[in-house]
């Protein structure tokens, strides 16, 4: 059992890590565009903002399990298969990207408008303001939000696991639920609890250090 638990933990960490990296990167890019184009942004553009806003809301309204099944053709195209940990990274990333975009948009919006104005007042370019002022100033908050995204993905990865993705969720359902091995289920859940604690702990520690 310990062997299987270790393997499942490894798969879970793999799925969560890779999909967190991808969704944070693409979510960050979306967030930057949204912050630039929103009404009180540096380059207001109602059309671009409204489109992204709608897209983000649309993707976020899908329950993960439905989204995962709906995009199976895409998953197969990207990963070559629709089963296994690697394949599940595709739906995980697509599900978490709009979420990451939205909360990082929030982080960037929280940056004091006065600091942005100060940067404008000595002639900084818009992109320089975004990457030289807004992103660094929002960084502590962004770090906390990355932890939120990762923990959210951990939950989704357990769901993905149940339909062939592997990992701790898969283990809990296969052994614990279907075979009535309560101890396996308990250990899987405990392992998930531990992972959440670690992610949040690291996030909070970095946040504290940055502030």
């Amino acid at each position: 059992m310990w062997h299987e638990l270790a393997a499942a933990l490894q798969e879970t960490l793999y799925m969560v890590t890779v999909s967190t990296v991808f969704s944070v990167l693409s979510g960050f890019a979306l967030a930057v565009v949204m912050v630039l184009t929103c009404a009180r942004g540096l380059r207001p553009n109602a059309a671009v903002y409204a489109t992204l806003d709608l897209l983000v809301n649309l993707l976020r309204s899908f329950p993960f399990i439905i989204l995962m099944i709906a995009i199976i053709p895409l998953t197969r195209f990207v990963a070559g298969t629709s089963i296994g940990s690697t394949a599940s990274i595709v739906p995980l990333t697509i599900a978490a990207t709009p979420f990451a975009a939205r909360i990082m948009e929030g982080s960037l919006m929280e940056v004091d408008a006065g600091v942005v104005e100060a940067a404008r007042s000595f002639g900084a370019r818009d992109l320089r303001i975004v990457f030289g002022v807004m992103v660094p100033e929002a960084m502590p908050s962004i770090v906390l939000n990355i932890a939120v995204v990762a923990i959210n993905l951990l939950g989704c990865s357990a769901m993905a696991g149940a339909v062939g993705g592997g990992g701790l969720g898969d283990l809990a359902v296969k052994y614990g639920y279907n075979r009535f091995q309560t101890d396996v289920m308990a250990y899987s859940v405990l392992a998930l609890v531990a992972v959440v604690q670690v992610i949040q702990g690291v996030g909070t520690a970095i946040y504290r250090r940055m502030r």
Partner: peptide, 17 residues
């Protein structure tokens, strides 16, 4: 032009980090 015109503010508007 803004390079030739410095500006200071009521709430200082400095970068906290």
């Amino acid at each position: 032009l803004r390079r030739e015109m410095g500006m200071i503010f009521q709430n200082f508007n400095l970068m906290e980090r």
